[in-house]
């Protein structure tokens, strides 16, 4: 028979792993919505990582979700720091006055028009460059290898990356650190993957996204 070992000595020698949740450092990139921050394990967007927004159709709230973050990033820093917010191949024209009303400083906003086959390349360049505060891309076809490249690029460039994709991709695995599906009926957000914690079970109604 094995000799009896005091539990305390095992714990002290760190040979037993205890499944205690560690207090994670809170993210320096809050989403701007307290209800959403509360659902995310780091209390905000995962830093230096790719987040995926899965949309069943265009124009159902993706900008409402992102605008507070983009506005905060575009106003951050002094006048000399010049980190850009880059939109790569957006499906529509960003309407300047609406973006300005949302608080986004337009001189920090840059739009890159790219053919579908160049979107991933351009996104990777922007993420890796460290010249951007946030990069939003609309890739039409992206497999998990391509997304993994973007994820690594975002880590290298310490940049917030957002990939806005069709909700059909929700069933496929993805290396993105955070995946959020936006539903229309009922209008709600579902976090289906978040690094560093289990995804919340309850969806978040879109109406909760108020300041």
């Amino acid at each position: 028979m094995a000799s009896v070992v005091a539990l305390d000595s095992l714990l002290d020698s760190r040979r037993v792993w205890r499944g205690q949740p560690q207090a994670r450092p809170t993210s320096r990139q809050p989403t701007g919505f307290a209800a959403l921050d509360a659902q995310l394990p780091s209390g905000g967007w995962p830093e230096s990582a790719l987040s995926e927004l899965l949309l069943p159709m265009d124009g159902i709230g993706e900008l409402r979700l992102l605008w507070p973050t983009l506005a905060r990033l575009s106003q951050a820093g002094d006048a000399s720091s010049d980190e850009k917010i880059v939109l790569i191949a957006p499906p529509y024209l960003p309407f300047a006055s609406a973006w300005a009303n949302a608080g986004v400083r337009l001189e920090r906003l840059q739009i890159v028009l790219a053919q579908p086959r160049d979107v991933l390349w351009a996104t990777e360049q922007c993420l890796r460059s460290a010249a951007c505060a946030a990069v939003l891309c609309w890739p039409l076809q992206a497999d998990d290898r391509a997304l993994r490249r973007l994820q690594v690029a975002a880590e290298t460039g310490q940049c917030l990356g957002f990939a806005l994709r069709d909700a059909k991709a929700a069933a496929n695995p993805s290396p993105a650190a955070l995946r959020i599906v936006i539903d229309t009926a009922p209008a709600q957000l579902r976090v289906i993957k978040c690094r560093g914690g289990n995804p919340p079970t309850q969806p978040l109604p879109l109406s909760a996204l108020a300041h």
Binding site: W99, L106, D118
Partner: peptide, 22 residues
């Protein structure tokens, strides 16, 4: 950013990168 912009323009075309104003 200047260098990144030139790199993007070199591959995507001269008019591919632009800003926005009201």
């Amino acid at each position: 950013w200047q260098q990144l912009r030139e790199r993007l323009r070199a591959r995507l075309g001269d008019d591919a990168v632009h800003g926005l104003a009201v």
